[in-house]
Amino acid sequence: HTELNGVESACERHLEMRQDIQNMKSDLSELRRLTEKIDIAFNVADDVARSMVRDYYMDGYSWEQISMRHHYSARWCREKVKKAVEDMSMVIFGMKAKPLQLSFVFVQ
Results as ranks from 00 to 15, higher is better:
Ser103Tyr: 11
Lys82Phe: 14
Val91His: 04
Gln65Trp: 00
Ile66Ala: 00
Asp87Leu: 04
Asn23Pro: 02
Thr35Pro: 00
Glu12Tyr: 09
Gly60Tyr: 04
Asp47Thr: 12
Ser26Ile: 08
Asp87Pro: 00
Met68Gln: 15
Ser51Thr: 12
Glu3Met: 11
Arg13Thr: 09
Ala41Val: 05
Val7Cys: 05
Val53Glu: 00
Arg33Trp: 08
Val44Trp: 03
Ser89Asn: 11
Met24Pro: 00
Asn43Phe: 08
Leu15Phe: 07
Asp47Ala: 15
Glu86Pro: 01
Cys11Thr: 14
Ser67Lys: 00
His70Thr: 03
Cys11Phe: 12
Lys82Gly: 12
Asp55Val: 00
Ser9Glu: 12
Val48Glu: 10
Phe42Arg: 06
Arg13Gln: 13
Leu34Tyr: 12
Arg78Asn: 13
Val44Ile: 13
Asn23Lys: 14
Ala10Val: 08
Ala45Lys: 01
Lys83Glu: 09
Ile38Ser: 05
Thr35Asp: 08
Met68Asn: 14
Tyr72Ala: 03
Ser103Glu: 14
Asn43Gln: 13
Ala97Pro: 01
Lys82Val: 08
Trp63Arg: 01
Asn43Met: 12
Gln65Thr: 05
Leu102Ala: 11
Leu4Ser: 07
Gln19Val: 06
Ser89Glu: 07
Leu100Pro: 08
Arg75Gln: 13
His1Val: 10
Cys77Tyr: 01
Ser29Gln: 10
Leu102Glu: 09
Val44Thr: 10
Glu16Cys: 06
His70Asp: 03
His70Glu: 04
His70Gly: 00
Ala41Trp: 03
Arg50Gln: 15
Arg33Tyr: 10
Asn5Cys: 07
Ser67Asn: 02
His70Val: 06
Val91Asp: 03
Ala45Leu: 05
Cys77Met: 02
Tyr57Asn: 02
Phe106Gly: 09
Phe106Thr: 08
Met52Glu: 04
Met68Val: 08
Ser29Gly: 12
Thr35Ala: 14
Ala10Ser: 11
Pro99Thr: 05
His71Val: 06
Ile21Val: 15
Ser89His: 05
Val53Phe: 04
Gln22Ile: 09
Ala49Gly: 06
Asp55Arg: 02
Thr35Arg: 11
Arg75Pro: 00
Gly94Asp: 04
Asn23His: 11
Arg50Asn: 06
Glu79Val: 11
Leu100Phe: 08
Val48Asp: 08
Ser9Val: 04
Val48Ala: 08
Lys80Ile: 05
Leu4Gly: 05
Tyr61Lys: 14
